[in-house]
């Protein structure tokens, strides 16, 4: 994974955010991680001019946000000319079939359920980190 790829994490639970970050780091992924605790801030950032300058990025998205649903962000991102090529990984507690289906229909690239069992959670994040290390993210124009 090239250093230019930035990870945008939208996660309202600070504990989860920290655990995710820790485990990504444990997988030796050193990309920059921008964390947003609510949907509004994340949207402001994603649709700001700054993003244009930052090149390729990957979005880690939680669905249960305090101010909006993660799917709303997904819809906006996938409808945007510039952002729609950015890979979106849904990382959430919801394992509801309809929700999963809906997210893939809306264009999410990966859907991961946070397991309560910490070992598998940590494992999953590390796997994700490994996955991120080999995947290619397209440049944001």
């Amino acid at each position: 994974m090239s250093h230019a790829v930035k990870i945008v994490m939208v996660e309202d639970d600070l504990g989860h955010a920290k655990l995710i970050e820790k485990n990504i780091r444990r997988a030796n992924i050193s990309n920059e991680i921008a964390h947003f605790a609510d949907g509004g801030a994340a949207m402001d950032y994603l649709f700001s001019e700054e993003v244009r300058l930052n090149g390729p990025m990957l979005i880690l998205l939680d669905l249960n946000l305090p101010d909006m649903s993660g799917t709303d962000i997904l819809i906006r991102v996938k409808a945007d000319e510039r952002l729609r090529r950015a890979p979106v990984v849904i990382l959430t507690t919801t394992d509801d079939k309809q929700e999963i289906q809906r997210c893939y229909d809306l264009g999410c690239n990966v859907y991961i359920t946070k397991p309560v069992d910490y070992e598998s959670f940590a494992g999953a994040i590390r796997q994700l980190g490994l996955f991120l290390s080999v995947m290619q993210a397209p440049d944001i124009e």
Partner: peptide, 21 residues
Amino acid sequence: AYIVSHDLRAPLVNVMGYTAE
């Protein structure tokens, strides 16, 4: 029931995670 079960799950992930930490 659906919301409760999911919202209850999120803190559990933390409890388990930080217990492991």
